[in-house]
């Protein structure tokens, strides 16, 4: 229990909005099958393009499917694929980064050169090139995006690994004759994974965008599995008559991404000094007022 305390303290400092949105996304994604009021792929050609009704709170699409249910199931699609991408990319990235940070020398040079090249090419282009060669499909998409995503975590974990390796206690361990395995698995790896997780979470929004974009282009999640980008492109031909079906999945995706982006920004901005918030200022004023009394009492 005590080990969780610092984690909670850190969570507490992050922007509330971000945590709420991310929490909502996670909950919706995890429990989608139980939350969706109707079968997301049940078509009803007699009830196409409906507005909100008692039966269909957000209306139906051009095939008469319930939009609300599809939006909810799409959260699940998104969560699962983003999760897979990040886990694979992080595993590869952390492995490469820690190896580079542990060995240094030419291994480091080579791996970081690859990372540089990978980072300089937009992830969408990398992913599309892979899909173009291998052919579309769910796992191609996940692998293609992982390939585009690992260099980021590779670079971060290398930086973290290098800083861990240069700490005095690692040097001491070495002198005391700790085995390389113990240093690697006991100290280097856990420390690096912790740091990379934070960045990976903040980056999940971009990954969600990438999944949706590939699906929008017809090269990601394939119908009938609902996905926000794919729902949007499906509804695009009916934009004039039924814009709601375009706007709703767009909003759902944007909301999820905003949550992750707020988180990412708050992490990036931590180091810049800002003026005090009104609340802290008042607290400090009270503190100072207390001193004056103390002194006059004396």
């Amino acid at each position: 229990m005590n080990r969780l305390k610092p984690a909670f303290a850190r969570l507490n400092k992050l922007p509330r909005v971000a945590l709420i949105v991310i929490g909502l996304f996670l909950a919706l994604g995890s429990f989608a099958p139980w939350l969706a009021p109707q079968d997301p792929s049940a078509q009803n050609l007699l009830e196409t393009g409906l507005g909100p009704t008692a039966a269909h709170w957000l209306g139906t699409d051009h095939l008469g499917r319930d939009t609300l249910s599809r939006l909810i199931i799409a959260a699940n699609t998104s969560l699962v694929s983003v999760g897979s991408v990040l886990i694979i990319a992080m595993t590869v990235g952390v492995a490469m980064g820690t190896i580079a940070g542990y060995h240094r020398g030419w291994v480091d040079d080579l791996l970081m050169r690859i990372v540089d090249v990978g980072l300089s090419i937009p992830s969408l282009i990398t992913a599309l090139a892979v899909i173009g060669i291998v052919g579309p499909g769910y796992w191609t998409m996940v692998l293609a995006l992982s390939l585009a995503w690992w260099p980021m975590s590779g670079r971060i974990s290398r930086a973290v690994a290098v800083s861990i390796m240069s700490k005095p206690h690692i040097e001491a361990l070495r002198v005391l004759g700790a085995s390389p395995w113990r240093i690697y698995f006991g100290h280097l790896l856990p420390g690096t994974i912790g740091a990379v997780m934070v960045y990976a979470t903040a980056d999940a929004g971009t990954a969600a965008l990438a999944v949706a974009t590939l699906s929008f282009l017809g090269l990601g999640i394939q119908p009938p599995t609902p996905e926000w980008g794919q729902m949007l492109v499906d509804a695009l031909p009916y934009l004039e008559s039924d814009p709601r079906q375009v706007i709703l999945p767009g909003l759902a995706l944007t909301a999820a991404v905003i949550g992750f982006n707020i988180l990412g920004e708050s992490i990036a901005l931590n180091r810049i000094p800002k003026p005090l918030s009104r609340r802290t200022l008042a607290l400090r004023r009270i503190e100072v007022a207390g001193w004056a009394k103390e002194n006059s009492d004396a």
Binding site: A212, T213, L232, L239, V246, I247, T254, V257, I258
Partner: peptide, 17 residues
């Protein structure tokens, strides 16, 4: 924040609409 979070294809669709 909005601009960085809205997917480009959604921006395009909104522009067109």
């Amino acid at each position: 924040l909005l601009g960085a979070s809205t997917p480009t294809f959604f921006v395009g669709a909104l522009m067109i609409y």
